[in-house]
């Protein structure tokens, strides 16, 4: 109600706060209350709690061998999984957009499964598949002697599963909107198909590939439900960082748990920032 009084202020030097559509204050109020109480204040706790340890304590808490191993594993496995997903996701997106074959529609629909399946369900399903007696685990063990479930390989496999649709679904619309005439032009200029793909198509997709990679990576770093069943959770070997948070909480080491969480967020931020910068350079390079 005081809102209209402010608007009538005749001595205003700045733009009059007239808004064409009414209802701004109410909706912004609800939004801030909602976002503040559910996301902002809680995340503030994550930033402030580790400070209780003091700089030295924080350093010790994070340079603990077990913490370092867990962070290395989480980030390394996430990176590897997203990297393997890149060609796989490109293949699936390409098949959906460019190819016509029986089952294409089913493939398109199935691509969202990792989004739709609750992580705990995915976790036990992937474990059952890759266990030494599983549909995939048994032949891999027999043929190559590979152990997937309860090893680091299993973690990467689970993270590949959750990350795959991020890459394929990011690529899909870009691939669909990509004009075919660039490829036709390349062909008229005498380029072979392979040259066209390598020099025309791939560079055009590169920024999108990076976006997909970043999304898959960000999701994989924090992934919990689909990993803990398949991981085996051996300290120093197959213990992921989110699990370490849970363990520290169970020991009532709140500040230590928050420190690991904060470190994860900070590291993710650095990786995503790097991807973003790389993308920007790519875009500028193309102009």
């Amino acid at each position: 109600m005081s809102a209209s009084a402010a608007a009538i202020d005749p001595a205003r030097g700045r733009a009059a706060p007239i808004r064409a559509v009414p209802g701004f204050r109410t909706s912004l109020g609800i939004t801030l209350l909602w976002a503040g109480s559910i996301v902002l204040i809680p995340l503030l706790a994550l930033v402030l709690r580790p400070l209780e340890l003091g700089p030295l304590g924080l350093w010790e808490s994070l340079t603990d061998e077990r913490v370092l191993a867990a962070l290395r594993l989480s980030f390394g496995a996430a990176f590897l999984a997203a990297a393997i997903d890149l060609p796989l996701g490109l293949l699936l997106a390409w098949a959906i957009v460019r190819l016509r074959f029986p089952g294409r529609g089913a493939l398109d629909a199935a691509l969202d499964l990792p989004f739709a399946l609750p992580t705990a369900v995915a976790g036990i399903a992937l474990t059952a598949l890759t266990a030494p007696n599983g549909w995939l685990g048994a032949p891999l063990m027999a043929m190559f002697g590979w152990k997937v479930a309860f090893s680091q390989a299993g973690i990467v496999f689970a993270l590949m599963f959750v990350g795959l649709p991020f890459i394929a679904r990011t690529l899909e619309p870009v691939l669909r909107d990509m004009p075919l005439d660039a490829e036709e032009a390349a062909a008229t200029l005498g380029a072979s198909r392979a040259q066209t793909l390598w020099r025309v198509v791939l560079p055009a997709l590169l920024p999108t590939l990076l976006t997909g990679f970043a999304l898959a990576f960000a999701r994989a770093v924090g992934e919990y439900g689909s990993v803990i069943f398949i991981a085996g959770n051996m300290p120093m070997v197959t213990e992921i960082a989110p699990l370490l948070i849970v363990i520290r909480l169970e020991q009532f080491d709140y500040a230590g748990a928050a420190a690991v969480g904060l470190a994860m967020l900070a590291l993710s931020f650095v990786v995503l920032l790097a991807v973003n910068l790389l993308q920007r350079r790519l875009r500028r390079g193309r102009l």
């Binding site: 209209s4 608007a7 202020d9 733009a15 009059a16 009414p22």
Partner: peptide
């Protein structure tokens, strides 16, 4: 749209701040 300065009168009534 708001204005940074100036006035609008419609039928003699100042419209400043009237939504």
């Amino acid at each position: 749209e708001g204005s940074d300065s100036g006035t609008v009168h419609i039928a003699g009534r100042d419209m400043t701040g009237v939504p």
